[in-house]
Write a protein that binds this DNA or RNA. Structure first.
Lengths: 153, 153
DNA sequence: ACATATCTGGATATCTATATCCATTACTTG
DNA sequence: CAAGTAATGGATATAGATATCCAGATATGT
């Protein structure tokens, strides 16, 4: 339903939401979100490009949210890496269908619209608040490299 | 959103629905639905396996619906070739999440559920009836090989 | 200024979905 | 029963998504 790239992007944003204030390195995000090392970079670049995340290079660099979690929706994140495409014209391009969708594709687009709408209704502030139905999704805290090495791990 | 295989399966069923009574060959279905020749066979086999379509070999053979169009939903067809997977457990397998989904995945699953529900609400009888919003999706009629050749085409 | 940490971006590899091809099997008609 | 038609199923090719790798650019602290 969602590509794994989209899953990764969402996990990354969850991680950043759970660690406000600090810049998180891609390695940290990869470990926390069980995302293939190195692939995170690609995903993060898309998120930077979409203005959802800010990056900083050099020591103590990393990624942080460009906005408040309450101003970032799930849909936005998904669209940044793997846009959901609505059906705007009959893929068959039958002239009989003109500009209107045929019933099949109208139905499919209705389903996509509904999917899209639900993803647009949740912000990351919502997703990290303790809810009724679900447990709080606190992603594991990963120690920064420096602290880790000092302890000889 | 939907794989092209799923699109093809839906177009194939639309074609069969539009041509009740006769068995349609895979070539015919491929042309009508603009589906890569030969690939139809694979898709149709899945639909046969799912009990949505019946096949018959030999001259005048082909495919026909195994049930009334009113008893076949869009969801069923999609699931026959490319099943929609609900999220049943947190993909991260974090022990903290136990059997409940975390909020992120709960939200994603809600969206999938909604998508699924809309696809389950339309049968192919609905989709071939003249509706308010959309034009009737009458797939082009493709002449059977015999008639075609007689006319020297 | 130097050494180090970290992102950036391009080149490349792997894997999965999509697509093609063909020999075989099953069926129909005459 | 012979001839021809069409699905079946396996082997293979192609394309696109996923993933890895590495050289370069940029920031930090000393």
């Amino acid at each position: 339903m969602l590509s794994s790239t989209a899953e990764y992007a969402l996990r990354s944003i969850m991680h950043l939401t759970s660690h406000p204030g600090t810049a998180c390195t891609s390695k940290e995000i990869a470990e926390s979100g069980q995302i293939p090392g190195g692939y995170v970079s690609k995903v993060m670049q898309d998120l930077v490009g979409a203005g959802i995340v800010e990056s900083q290079r050099g020591p103590n660099g990393g990624f942080r949210l460009a906005r408040e979690p309450g101003a970032i929706t799930v849909l936005e994140v998904v669209n940044a890496v793997d846009p959901i495409r609505r059906i705007v014209a009959c893929p068959l391009r039958l002239p009989e269908h003109g500009s209107r969708l045929c019933q099949l594709h109208q139905q499919l687009d209705d389903a996509i619209a509904s999917f899209e709408r639900i993803l647009s209704e949740a912000t990351f502030a919502d997703l990290t608040r303790e809810g009724k139905r679900s447990s709080r999704c606190q992603f594991p805290t990963v120690e920064r490299g420096a602290a880790k090495r000092k302890r000889g791990k």
